[in-house]
Every structure is written in C-alpha cells, then in structure tokens.
Design a binder for these strands. Structure first.
Length: 751
DNA sequence: TAATGGTAGGGGAGGAAACCAGGATCATAG
DNA sequence: TAATGCTATGATCCTGGATTCCTCCCCTAC
C-alpha cells in the first residue's frame, strides 16, 4: 500500500478480522442498497477498489464483496491494463467492471482534461476550489486508528474530506454533464470516454453512419507500418518585438472544413486517375495527387460526422456567449474544445497507421490542402494590402510575419488596434471568398504589442475589442510549460507583464535582477524551485540518463511504495554537489532536501533555468548583451551558501564551536558561547538573539495556524505533509530555523 | 494481451567526436 | 681524433579541458 493518492482505508492490523470482515460486508451491502449509477472518488480505480477486493480476498469474503453489480450473479471483474496513447502517454491502469454502474474516477478525468503541474488531490483541489485538505501520511493513519477517540474522529474527518472534495470537483467542473454530452454525440458508453482513446469515438460514429447506409466497415489487418506523411507548414517567423498592432487571421476548424469542402472520405476515394470522369466536375485531384469524387456523385460519411460535431460545437459556443458566470464559461469552453478535438481527431484517425482504419490518402490530402491554403492566404493578404490599396486606406505594405498551420499574423503597419481590426476583418472576408464552402478565414484578434521569439513561441497582449486588452497570451514559452520550476514561470510572466502592460523595460529588468539576487542569497522558497517531469516509460527503456528517471529509481530503492510510477510526474530540485557533476546526479526529492537541510544549487537555477528564458525575452529589446547582464551583474555578487547537514562529506566533518557574536573560532577555555572579545557585550547579544527567536516564533505561529485553519483543527497538532502546498514547505523551513535559534539562545543562557 | 488521433518544432541535457593547448618524452644536431 | 656529456630544438604522443554536433526526451502549437 502507499501510493500517493491513497484513499482512506484503515489498516487491517488495527482490527480483528471478524470485525473488519463485518464492516467490509456491510459496505458492499450499503452499495447494493443505495444502488448508485456512478461511483466516484479520487484514484479509486487504481487504489481503493483494488485494495477493497484484495482485502475481501484475504478475509475470504470476496464472494460477498464482489457482488456489487446490478446484474445478479455477475461479479465485479478487475484486471490490469497497459494503455498507451499520444494524448495520455504510457500508463498502467486497473480496469474494473461493475455491470450497470460506472466508475467515474475524478483523477482520471482530471488527467485527461487538464494539464497541471501536479495531480494530487490537494493540488487539484487547491487549483479548482481554492481549498485543501490535511494530507496525512499513510504511516500515521494506523496510529490514528489505534489512538484515542479524538484521534479516530480526526481520521474520520480526514476520510470525509477525501470523499467530499472529489464530489465538489465533479460538481464544479461539470464533468459528468460534459461527458454525457460527449457520449451522446459520439455514441460510446460513458466509461469508454475515461479509459479508452479517441479512435473508438470515431469508429462508433462511423458505424452509426454505415448502418443507415447499409455499408460494412472493412477489417484492416493493421500491419505495423511506420510510414508517415508530411504535415502542416509553419511560416518562418520574422522574430522581434513589435510595438505595433499585429492582426491574426485563423481558419475555423481547418482540417474538418477541408474534409467537408473537398468531400474527403473512405467512400469517395478513387484508386488511380479515373478516365471516364471529368476533373473539377466529377472528382477532385488533391495537391498530394489523390482523387476523390465530388458530393454530387456521392457524399462522404466523414463529412456528415464532421458536420454533426461542428454544429454541436457551434451550439456550445453560443451558450458560452450567453453565459455570465465565469466558471461556467470555462466549462462550456471546455466542452466546445472537446468537440473541436473530437472533430480534429477524425483527421487524426485516418492518419493513425496503427489504428483500425488508416487511410493516408485522406490525411495527406488534408494536410496538402492546408499547406496550399496558408500559402495562398499569405500571398493574397500581402498582395491585396499593398501601400495605397483600398483608396489609400492602407498606409504601408502588409507583411505576414508568422503563421502556423491555420493562422497568419499580419503586420498592417497601422498604429491603433482599431485600425488593425478593420483591416483584419476586411482581409478575412476577402480571402475567404477564394475558398470552397464551408472553409472560412476568420479575423480573431489583435496582438499589441507582440513578442515573436521563434516558431511556436510568442507572447502578446490579446485584444478582441479596441479599447482594452483581454489578457496576456503566451504560447510555447516557459510560462506555459510544466517542465521548469515555478520560479521561472512566475518571473518570466511578471517580466512580460511589465514589458507589455506597463511598457517599462527598465523596471522589468530590475525586477529580474532582484529575483536573481534573492535566489543567490537563498531567499527563494523551495516550493518555487521544484521541477517536475513525467515518467513516460519504464526505467530500462530509457537510452539517455535523465534527472527525473534517475531520481525515481533512487526513490524506488529507498521506498518502493511511495516512489513515482509509470505516467506520474516526478518532482525534484537540484542540489549543490559541485560544478562538474551531471544534473541527473544532483536531482533530489524536495521533501528529503527540506528535512535534511541539503543546500540548493542556486547557480544551476540561475544558469540553467532562469538565464536563457529571460535572455530570450530581453534580447529583442536590449540586444545580445542581455544574458551576460543578467548572469554577471552586480546583483550576483552576494551569495549565501547553506550548510550541508547530511550525506557525503558531512559525516566526516566536525563541528567547531564558534562565537555566537562574531563567528570566530572559540578557544578551549571559553564559556562555550562567546569569545573573549564579545563577552563584554553579552547582554546585547543575548537580547538580539532572543528578539530574533521571537520573530521566528511568530512566523512559525502564523504558518501553523494557517495549517490548522486548513486542516480544520485548532486543538491538536497539525499532521499535514502536503507535497504541493507552499505553506507546508515554509512551515518546515521555519521549523528548522526555529530549532536553530532555540539552540543558540540555549547556549547563551547556559554560558 | 489489447489497444493506441496526427505532424512540426523548440529547447534542454547527455554523450560522442573533433579540436586544441600544454606537458612529457625522445631523437637529433651541435 | 674519437667518445662522451650536455643543451637546444623540434617532432611525436598523451592528456585534460573546451567546443561542436548529434540524439534523446519532454512538452507544446496547431
């Protein structure tokens, strides 16, 4: 036992078997009496249910406990399932089937729908509900159960919260509603949406269509072919900082609309060039050299499916427009995004060479049309909006500075957002006329200012109305990536805000320098320095050594129960071990580092985490001196190196007593606290140290009561060890400080 | 075993290969 | 005069460090 999303099951050792059997059997009876449609919880699929069934087997009452289904005499089944997909990565899951009920595991839903830095119940609850629970380590659970009635009450409260938070999450995220909607649209059972991929949804829709038209789906022997095809164009960016409005034009649902417009489908594909038909009238030749008949001869199945999905999306978008509550807006946005992804995965399905029905003729035709269209768009916009065009309305030649797959960013050379919007709108309607229905180029937004760093990496202030920006939009930058530490993300975000919103480069740079100085002086909280990466495959499948993989292996050797498993994100910090040591040797578990006071390699964080991303955003403004300015400036002079307390050399070191007042090495004949020079100032030093102790105590008290508040206990000790809670890290750090200060004062008063 | 949407692309880290400077060693001339 | 000792010089090889290039890996954009 002991996965991190453990549920709240008491250890069987703490009860005699008969009593435990009784409760477990009662629990199964309770389920049968309640007769729920949906069973939910957090990680119940991979922890709680397997655990219950294991216990039942051990207690020899599995025949009772397994009878949870709605069909008499069909017991629950449980089996291991190795799943791998591009969307979800590799994962080992338990698959539990209870006839007539659905296991709706909130963790699985969150994993699927949201990209987060951490997926513990605590972290997720904090993210969505702004609320946490006391996270009790699993070893303590047994102690609590064996303790006083008050302890057991506490355990009960903890368990309640463990069950209550997932419910709150479901309610707030409207997951069940959204999944039902998806199940209706695609025609697959609800639980397929949780434990299976995108393909099954497309297959299901295809089957529906084929049935109405009396067609059969062929069974294709999936040869393990690894042939690929050419994808989309990414226009070479004209990198730089644009202090002028940049308009963006997007194709709405590019790939689905191409498939509808050109009738690309399995049922319309012609093998080879048809001789008795007319090109353009009866059939289309795609830019990749494939042939498809026109809708007048036969309308494709895929077109129909896509039209359904797109109209569902349009409905969701309309609801979104009328919704006032910002959170419901977010959820509706999620729904329309899910429908968009479903529509896009129809294209993906035809290109999935390991899938049920691959058809590269379709997918490569789609992308080739896409490439042709973005080229045409770029050229027509630049052609149409030359200086002097539209009766002199256009002041400068329009330039497409960047574009990716279905979008182009246009610099019209105007000064205001309003002008850019007018021209953008004009361009979108004009260019749309060049394409077949329902392909449509839309004007969506204006960026002003716009920082274009590289392909797939940019930031800008996002305007949809001329007077005020909606938000700051960052794409591909470290602020939206999860494989760096939060410090990088927050600093970069703040700097970008100062650059874009306040338009103050000097202040922005000063802020960055300030943070760097804080970092080098150890004033940055450790929770800001935690890097996390996903364990995407089994240890032996990695060819190259990597920090998170090596650490996961070390943790497995320390404690196999709590070590990260396949598909988990591994959090780590880089500790000081010398300059020449590889990063994978310096990665360490944050809690371990905190508990043992191991010093952080702040230089690593400066040079390998902060420096490059910051340099990249300051570069276009300050020129290429930006990086050296950041790394070597005056603000990097002062450093504090924390003392090593464990491991390595520490055990060979002897602590030499030093003077509390001036840190000078103490002579043998001193009183054990102060040197001869400081001795006369004894009272002053004592007062100062006591004052310092008071400050630390107060700080600790504040954090402690915050934790008590969160845990909902004001009488007892806080047990929480939530790995994702910044307060927890601060509390632990201050606890160490407090201990140190108390020792100092102790030494002084004894002397 | 059964099941698995796609390609394009940036960027960090590790590791091999190419490169270079400096020292040790040795042969040779004088 | 021949043999020997010594030094200066240059060639060669080895070694450690810095640099470059390539590949792997993660994560994102669309």
């Amino acid at each position: 036992m002991g996965h991190k999303h453990m549920g709240s099951w008491i250890s069987p050792n703490s009860l005699d078997n008969t009593s435990y059997s009784y409760h477990l059997a009662k629990w199964a009876e309770f389920i049968r009496t309640c007769d729920p449609d949906i069973l939910t919880g957090y990680n119940i699929q991979n922890f709680d249910f397997p655990y219950i069934f294991d216990r039942a087997k051990h207690l020899k009452i599995d025949s009772v406990v397994h009878q949870l289904s709605r069909v008499r005499n069909v017991p629950c089944k449980i089996r291991d399932q190795m799943s791998q997909s591009k969307q979800m990565g590799n994962r080992v899951n338990k698959q539990i089937s209870i006839e007539g009920r659905i296991i709706f595991d909130v963790l699985q839903v969150i994993l699927r729908d949201y990209k987060l830095r951490s997926y513990t119940l605590n972290s997720v609850s904090y993210h969505f509900l702004n609320e946490q629970k006391e996270d009790v380590e699993h070893q303590i659970i047994t102690d609590l159960q064996n303790g006083s009635p008050l302890d057991r009450r506490r355990l009960a409260v903890y368990c309640m919260k463990d069950a209550y938070l997932p419910l709150r999450l479901l309610e707030k995220l409207m997951s069940v509603i959204n999944y039902m909607e998806m199940a209706r649209v695609t025609g697959v059972p609800l639980n397929f949406l949780i434990f299976r991929g995108q393909q099954v949804k497309v297959i299901s829709q295809l089957m529906r269509r084929t049935k109405t038209q009396n067609l059969f789906l062929p069974v294709v022997e999936g040869g393990q072919s690894d042939d690929t095809y050419e994808g989309a164009t990414v226009i070479e960016p004209m990198r730089g900082f644009y202090n002028e409005p940049i308009a963006t034009l997007d194709f709405a649902s590019l790939y689905p609309s191409i498939m509808i417009a050109h009738n690309l489908c399995y049922t319309t594909l012609l093998k080879g060039c048809p001789e008795n038909l007319k090109e353009g009238e009866d059939y289309t030749k795609t830019p990749s050299g494939n042939y498809f008949v026109k809708p007048s001869l036969r309308k494709g199945l895929l077109a129909g499916i896509l039209e359904d999905l797109l109209s569902a999306r349009k409905r969701a978008k309309n609801e979104l427009k009328n919704e006032k509550d910002p959170f419901k807006q977010m959820v509706l946005n999620g729904r329309q995004l899910a429908l968009k992804i479903s529509a896009n995965s129809v294209y993906g399905f035809t290109g999935a060479t390991v899938g049920k029905l691959p058809c590269l003729e379709i997918s490569q035709s789609v992308t080739s049309f896409g490439r042709q269209m973005i080229d045409l768009t770029k050229n027509s916009v630049e052609e149409m909006f030359k200086a002097g065009a539209l009766d002199g309305l256009v002041k400068q030649d329009a330039v497409v500075i960047y574009g990716d797959t279905d979008s182009v960013m246009v610099k019209f050379g105007v000064e205001t957002v309003q002008e850019a919007m007018t021209l953008g709108l004009k361009a979108a309607t004009e260019v749309s006329k060049k394409f077949v229905q329902p392909i449509k180029l839309e004007f969506e937004k204006v960026y002003f200012p716009y920082l274009l760093i590289n392909k797939k990496r940019y930031a800008g202030l996002y305007f949809t109305k001329p007077d005020k920006h909606d938000k700051m939009d960052c794409k591909g930058l470290e602020t939206v990536r999860r494989d760096n530490c939060p410090l990088v993300a927050t600093v970069l975000n703040k700097c970008l805000e100062m650059l874009m919103i306040d338009r103050n480069a000097t202040a922005s740079l000063a802020y960055a320098k300030n943070v760097i100085s804080d970092l080098l002086c150890n004033r940055v909280d450790i929770s800001m320095l935690i890097i996390s990466k996903e364990l995407t495959r089994r240890g032996e499948k990695y060819q190259a050594k990597q920090a998170h993989v090596e650490l996961a292996e070390r943790m497995r050797q320390r404690d196999p129960g709590s070590a990260p498993r396949l598909g988990d994100r591994v959090p780590y910090v880089i500790v000081a071990k010398g300059k020449k040591v590889a990063a994978y040797e310096k990665a360490e578990d944050p809690i371990y580092v905190l508990r043992n006071g191991i010093p952080i390699d702040t230089r690593y964080y400066l040079e390998n985490q902060l420096a490059k991303p910051l340099a990249r955003i300051f570069d276009p403004i300050l020129g290429d001196k930006a990086e050296s300015l950041l790394i070597n400036g005056d603000h990097t002079r002062t450093k504090t190196v924390a003392q090593i307390k464990v491991g390595g050399l520490a055990k060979h070191m002897k602590v030499i007593p030093t003077c509390i007042g001036c840190k000078a090495v103490l002579q043998k004949d001193s009183n054990g606290a102060l040197c001869a020079y400081c001795l006369p100032r004894r009272h002053l030093i004592y007062a100062e140290k006591v004052a310092r102790l008071k400050v630390v105590q107060r700080h600790f008290g504040r954090l402690w009561s915050e934790c008590q508040n969160c845990a909902g206990t004001f009488q007892e000790e806080v047990l929480c060890s939530a790995r994702d809670c910044p307060i927890f890290y601060m509390r632990e750090k201050v606890r160490l400080d407090l201990h140190e200060q108390m020792q100092i004062v102790d030494r002084l008063s004894k002397a």
